[in-house]
Design a protein around this nucleic acid. Sequence first.
DNA 1: GTAATGTTTTACCAACCGGTCAAATTATCA
DNA 2: TGATAATTTGACCGGTTGGTAAAACATTAC
Lengths: 217, 217
Amino acid sequence: MVLPRAAKTQRRTRIQEEKEEQILEAALEVFATHGFRGSTIDQIADVAGMSKPNLLYYFRTKEAMHRALIDRVLDSWLDPLREFDAEGNPVAEIRSYIRRKLEMARDFPRESRLFANEVLQNAPHILDELKGPLKTLVDEKAEVIRTWVKAGKIAKCDPYHLIFAIWSTTQHYADFDVQVRAVLGETHSGEGRFEDAARFLEQLFINGLAVHGPATV
Amino acid sequence: MVLPRAAKTQRRTRIQEEKEEQILEAALEVFATHGFRGSTIDQIADVAGMSKPNLLYYFRTKEAMHRALIDRVLDSWLDPLREFDAEGNPVAEIRSYIRRKLEMARDFPRESRLFANEVLQNAPHILDELKGPLKTLVDEKAEVIRTWVKAGKIAKCDPYHLIFAIWSTTQHYADFDVQVRAVLGETHSGEGRFEDAARFLEQLFINGLAVHGPATV
DNA sequence: GTAATGTTTTACCAACCGGTCAAATTATCA
DNA sequence: TGATAATTTGACCGGTTGGTAAAACATTAC
């Protein structure tokens, strides 16, 4: 046979596994920094260290590469939110959600930027995922937050906007990294950066959502 | 003469003003939704309702268009931060900064996305502006916040990360609009959306930064 | 070993892209 | 009005891009 071309056959050879891995790694690198339309197959092939036709042997089109990448990454990207536990202590849960999201921004910035590029450009390839699985998950967790509010565990607030705020503040450090570095200067943009961010964000959200006594101005 | 080609002559005719305006409006639309590399001159020409060569008569290159756009928009984009007043009441200042940023996200989403695209893709065209004017302005305002902290007007916190948090949470509603809509569903994503966001963010930041008494629970 | 299958390369194509050119058209103003 | 300058257009160009065809090469199964 001459056309296994990306998962058409059920059986995957060792080489298929390896090369597809290599390609997706390269595709992540390129798509994350240039967006879908701004990326070229040649670029990806170059990063992956193989020829363009070879790459197209494993993924028939640029879209197929992008799709495979999204499918692989989306699920794990939502893991932190899934861990959000209704039974846990609200303050601790929110704190550790922020932690986890911030760690992902630090450890997987390319994944963050892959989605950021996609969403920024009106999510042409993942709109269904946003309206389906993502919305479902968020609805579910919003309900959890709502029960916490009703139980007086955290301040009255809109759970959706709370989730948006956590997403945006944490992902900011991955998506807008260049700007953060530019503003902080090389001195403050080193290792301590994430610790500083974590400290600030935890304070902001914990105090911001605390059910507290009267402010002393 | 046959080559006024975009501001080479000092005198601008009425037609020049009008057409350049038209082009930049179209360029904003296109660059904001596709990023620089993802946009084509034909697309911009199409949106502007003129032919490609005609467009290139006013701006010699795609880069020149982008540059002109950035130059025009960057300054006004930073206005809200400039208004940040050292003499004002800290809480009121922060509250109205959030307001203004949120209004800009609502009223000028394309401008927000223009920069988001640019920064997300490592700011190849505006890195100097980030390291120069932007950093300078932020440094200045960070100093203001620091004096407020020292005066005990707001809680102890890192002023830079505070600014990043305000940027990210507010711009999120412009840059990730599709995602926000997808999650909220068509019902909650109408007019009240910005009011809800404003209410939440003001609460978050004001409580989060308040110097308050002991939390109950 | 050899035949069948799986992988890689070379050469290529049509569409698109950024940009040029010269001619045609339109606006300006003496 | 007509001369002159400003604007617009259509035809075009070289390079890039997504993708293909087919043959060469490698691997595996028997």
